[in-house]
């Protein structure tokens, strides 16, 4: 059974139709990349999958593990194993990163029927994962994302993914605002999580990230629909020729 099945998805924000019939199937173990110019609907797609308010799905459906994803509240989607890595992680003053991670992990564990981790188990569990991503104890003590640099925020996103161990990770422009060293670190973190059971949907504007996270499939999203799909070589083609060839040909 596919992990994620998006069928003819149409969505509007206010009166504006943003997604105009998306079809996409992700099987366990696969890494898909969605590329596309600004304003093509990439972020809208990721938010709709994660369950953010403010979008009207007018047609189509999304199955996650065979279940109707769109009828689940955002927190249930996360508990069921969907993870969104935010393009712009939110700063939350007054909530320590550690407290946040613990609350989230124990919520997900409760949904799976697992006991909460005690303080010591949790600390070890997080530290093990934080070390790989160079997330310091100081960052874990600070308020969630408050005063974090762009790179720290993105590393914190990947840490959250590593802590929650989702079945499907949607990574929205995880590369934006990262220098090359930070990009490598983040990509390593993502690659470490590739397993035969886990799926990934990597959304990006640039091919650069895909040098480090090698996708099995690449899709071009423009004007609200997927105009072309192919293997990883499609990304290289786009890098050389730009989006114009595909979108222009289609628009003409």
């Amino acid at each position: 059974m596919p992990l994620l099945e998006i069928q003819n998805l149409h969505a509007t924000v206010g009166d504006k139709e943003i997604l105009k019939g998306i079809n996409l199937v992700i099987k366990p173990g696969e890494v898909h990349a969605i590329m596309g110019p600004n304003g093509s609907g990439k972020s809208t797609l990721s938010y709709i999958l994660a369950g953010r308010d403010g979008y009207d799905v007018t047609k189509g459906e999304v199955l996650f593990d065979g279940k109707d994803l769109l009828s689940m509240p955002a927190d249930e989607r996360a508990c069921a194993g969907l993870f969104l890595g935010f393009q712009y992680p939110v700063e939350i003053p007054g909530v320590a990163t550690m407290t946040f991670l613990k609350t989230a992990l124990n919520a997900v564990r409760a949904y799976r029927g697992d006991d909460p981790l005690d303080a010591m188990q949790f600390l070890n569990y997080v530290r093990e994962r934080a070390m790989v991503l160079n997330v310091t104890d100081d960052m874990l003590r600070r308020a969630l994302n408050v005063g974090f640099s762009g790179g720290e925020k993105k590393r914190n996103e990947i840490l959250q993914m590593a802590v929650l161990e989702p079945r499907l990770a949607v990574l929205d422009e995880t590369d934006s605002g990262l220098d090359i060293d930070a990009l490598k670190l983040v990509a390593e973190g993502v690659n470490a999580m590739r397993t035969p059971e886990r799926g990934m949907l990597v959304i990006t504007h640039y091919q650069r990230l895909l040098n480090y996270i090698e996708p099995d499939h690449v899709h071009v999203l423009a004007q609200g629909s997927i105009l072309q799909s192919g293997g990883k070589e499609l990304a290289l083609e786009l890098e050389k020729n730009g989006y114009g060839d595909i979108t222009g040909a289609e628009a003409a």
Partner: peptide, 27 residues
């Protein structure tokens, strides 16, 4: 309550009531 912050917390599996509580107590 900051709706972006609420969504961020909920997108990590924290239910609506707990997410609100977390933000209120932080405030």
């Amino acid at each position: 309550l900051d709706t972006d912050a609420l969504f961020y917390l909920r997108s990590r599996g924290i239910d609506k009531v707990a997410a609100r509580n977390l933000l209120i107590s932080a405030f």
